[in-house]
Amino acid sequence: MVDTKRTASTRLSMFFNNDNVVGHVFAAPFIFGFICFSFIPICMSLYYAFTDYSLGSKVAVFVGAKNFLMLFEDEVFIKSIKKTLQYVFFAVPLKLSFALLVAFVLTRKSRMVTFYRSLYYVPSLVGGSVAVALVWKQLFARKGLFNSVLMNMGFEKINWFGSEALAIYPLILMAVWQFGSSMIIFAAGLKEIPSTYYEAAQIDGANGFQSFFRITLPCLSPIILYNLVMQTISSFMTFTQAFVITAGGPNNATMLYALNVYNQAFKYNRMGYACAMSWVMLVVMSLITLVIFRTSKFWVFSESES
C-alpha cells in the first residue's frame, strides 16, 4: 500500500517536473484564448464565407463560391484593393525611413537620448486610438489648423477630405507619424553593430554617408526585413483612421480594406460576404509577405554567410 502511494506521488511529481508539462501549464491561458477567440472564429469565418450569413437573420444558407465571384464585380471592392495598396506602398517605406532616421539620430551618446526616445515613442502608444484620429480630422478640416496656416501664408486653402486625390495622404501621414515601435527596434539593432567597423572605416577614410550605406544599412538589413514585414501586415489592417476620419469617402477614396469588410459585415449586414473578403485579404497579404521574403535574400545581409 505504502509502496504504491509512494510511487503514485513520485509519478505525480515526475509528471509535474517534466519540462513539457510545465510549459503547457504556463501556456494554457494563451492556448485557451487562442482557440476560443482566434482559432474557432477563424474556422467559422471560413465556413461563413461560403454562406449568405448575416447578423440580422442568423440563417446561413450555403451558397458555394458565389461570395467570391461577386467580389470581382464589386466596384467598391476593387477600389478598396487599389486604395489599400496605395496606402501600404506609401505609408510603409515612409514610416520605416523616418523611423530609421530618428533611431540613427537618437543613438548618439547624449544625456537626453532616452528622454527623446520615449518622447518619440508616445505617438505610437496613442496611435491607434480614436482620440488621435479625431484630432487629425480637426487638423485637416476645412477650417482646421493646416488650412489656417496655409491661408495665413497666402496660399489657397486645401480641401483635404473633399478631394478624391488628396484624401488618403493625411491618413498616410498619420501612419508615418506613428513610427515609434519600428524606431525602438531599429535603435536596438543599431546598438548591436560593433563600433570597430566604424572605427576601421574611419581609418580607411570613409565619410559619414559611406559608413551609413556600407556598414549601417547592411548590418541592419535583417532588422529592416523584420520591420518591413510587420509594418506591411499592420498597414493592410489599418481601420481606425479611415473609419473615424473619412468614413471611407470621398467617393471611396479612403475605403481601406478593413473598413470595407467592416461595412459589409456590420453596416450592410452581409457577414458571409465580409468573411469571403477577409479570406481574400489573407491570401493577398500572404502573397505579398512571401514576395518580401523571397526577395530578401538579395538584400538582407547575414553575417554567418559571409
Partner: peptide, 8 residues
C-alpha cells in the same frame, strides 16, 4: 457641401 465637408 461635398462628402469631405459633410463628414464633419
Amino acid at each position: 457641401p461635398d462628402a469631405g465637408a459633410s463628414a464633419e
